[in-house]
Design a protein around this nucleic acid. Sequence first.
DNA 1: TTGAAAGCGCTAACAA
DNA 2: TTGTTAGCGCTTTCAA
Lengths: 352, 352
Amino acid sequence: MPVTIRDVAEAAGVSIATVSRVLNNIDHPVSVETRQRILACAESLGYRPNVAARSLRTDRSATVGIIADDIIGPFATKIIRGIQDRLRQAGYLCVIISADWDPNAEREAIHDLVSRSIDGIIFSETWHHTAVDLLDLASKPYVFVHRQFAAPGEYSTIPDERYGAHLAMNHLIGLGHRRIGYINGPEHYYASALRLAGYREELESAGIVFDPALVARGDWGLESGYIAMQYLLKAQPRLTALFAGNDLMAAGAIYALQDAGLRVPEDVAVVGYDDREISRTFRPRLTTVTLPCYEMGQAAAQMLLDRMEGKAEVAAEVQVRGCLLVRESCGAPRESTTGCEDGAGEKRQSRR
Amino acid sequence: MPVTIRDVAEAAGVSIATVSRVLNNIDHPVSVETRQRILACAESLGYRPNVAARSLRTDRSATVGIIADDIIGPFATKIIRGIQDRLRQAGYLCVIISADWDPNAEREAIHDLVSRSIDGIIFSETWHHTAVDLLDLASKPYVFVHRQFAAPGEYSTIPDERYGAHLAMNHLIGLGHRRIGYINGPEHYYASALRLAGYREELESAGIVFDPALVARGDWGLESGYIAMQYLLKAQPRLTALFAGNDLMAAGAIYALQDAGLRVPEDVAVVGYDDREISRTFRPRLTTVTLPCYEMGQAAAQMLLDRMEGKAEVAAEVQVRGCLLVRESCGAPRESTTGCEDGAGEKRQSRR
DNA sequence: TTGAAAGCGCTAACAA
DNA sequence: TTGTTAGCGCTTTCAA
């Protein structure tokens, strides 16, 4: 049988109210010796407050919910880890639910969470957010992280995609390249538009005129990168560098380049995006821009924490910057990473 | 303000006891009309039972805890997904905690979970399990999934590693290979010993004598596969096939082979293990044995469900089999997968 | 077949 | 500075 607040009170020879006051650090006068005694008793008895009982009284549970369309993706896991680490620090546990792109599942998830008196919800990489009315109704705070479609909206944490594209392009231009191709992602993705914008801006500020023939579109998949590269090669055979919308397409593009008898990075320099596993295992190893998933998770958790505390000045939108990891595919000498503290993108890799 | 059982009782003109009986399907006589009326009222009011209140009474919460040393790894995520899907089906939600290989964190996690009245715990890929005494104390059931070190022990779900090795080797031998190298994983891993055993057994049953010079050791990393392959090439230059302990080492080995002027699969056929992302993006695409993570997760969830229901005949250990995915690196014609239903290993891949 | 009421462990308002 | 007590929403025993 677990130890209750009553047991502690008895052991310390005081009332349960006093115990509660001490253990919760309530601003209420308690004599020093009593406090000491209670703390000692609680400690030695191994007292742990019953969260259910507390929730019943306070409608708070030191638990937050994470709803993700898929918890298995390469970004989602890192985001979730970032959220958890920050939240645990603040004493919260996380309940994670995958909604599988199903609005009904999402509504159900919210109900399940609310009926557990969770204190807030983080939506991670969710497509829709039709169900937040339920939360407004229950007056639970919520926050979004890495919404990939349409505008991120209020209380969002997203990557600074434009900045990432600047990093990649600036590097390539600095290496002396002028004819730089770009393989964009699918149209409806938020990242596609912004990375393209970054590509154009950086070109412009270097005084290079934008050439539409240098831009192709893929679907984030490796195969699509291959096809896009073939198209680019036909349209503009004289390009000397490529910025790919993500690492997978970069890999596909390199295969196409190799099949066309071109060497990477000697003939064409390539920079990818995302710092996926493939960028480390590929030959040549891919120079890439990191997607700061872990950091976004942390930032989202912080934002939720702020909202839960009722802070007035919660920023509506936080942008997190990745950094450039210079490896082999761009032909540059190994140099220090650009854009954030040393090697941040190399952290948090899994074992095995 | 949320709807309580009292609201429903009032609306239906009955006592809260009756409502509780109907809504929980308790075996207690209730007239058909009353039942109907209560159900209708609950529905139309949108009643959701307060889980905290229920937990307080029953010490159950329809929530289970998952403790993993790292939730970010390639296997962990899929295992967790399998657990969740099975458990949600049974009406449970999951709280996930990463313990980071820290025994203290693990103990803390258990406390946090127990104080939330969780109904059971699944340990996913945890190294140690020193803290289960706490659970025995609280009389909460628990279960292990994919313990990678030492013996799996009671209530474990693990992959059938030996069977997987048989699949790989049988395929290679069937292709006519006799001199087959093997790159093993690190010594203390459970999988290393069993895959090696499977390698030897299959050799033996084909009447091929085991040659120690054909076995090298890596650390699961790509680089180590490269080095191991160089060693193998020196020790036994005439091998025609390689079975690598995992996909990463297979990739490294292929790089070494290529650097030595050998072609894969023409000169040397290669089979990997795990069906990691790299096996699909590599050139040539890797033939590999799947690690049935999702299925292990499901099996573990089922095992916990059984224990929570107090079933007597819960199996002490469940082994789950993967299957062989024939792709390009082994030089075989594309054939149907062996060992499990069609394409199981191709399911559950993430988007983007 | 239904209802009244106790009480799970805790917080917080009120009293002393 | 400390204690008493109501009550959060629910399940379950006992009585009707």
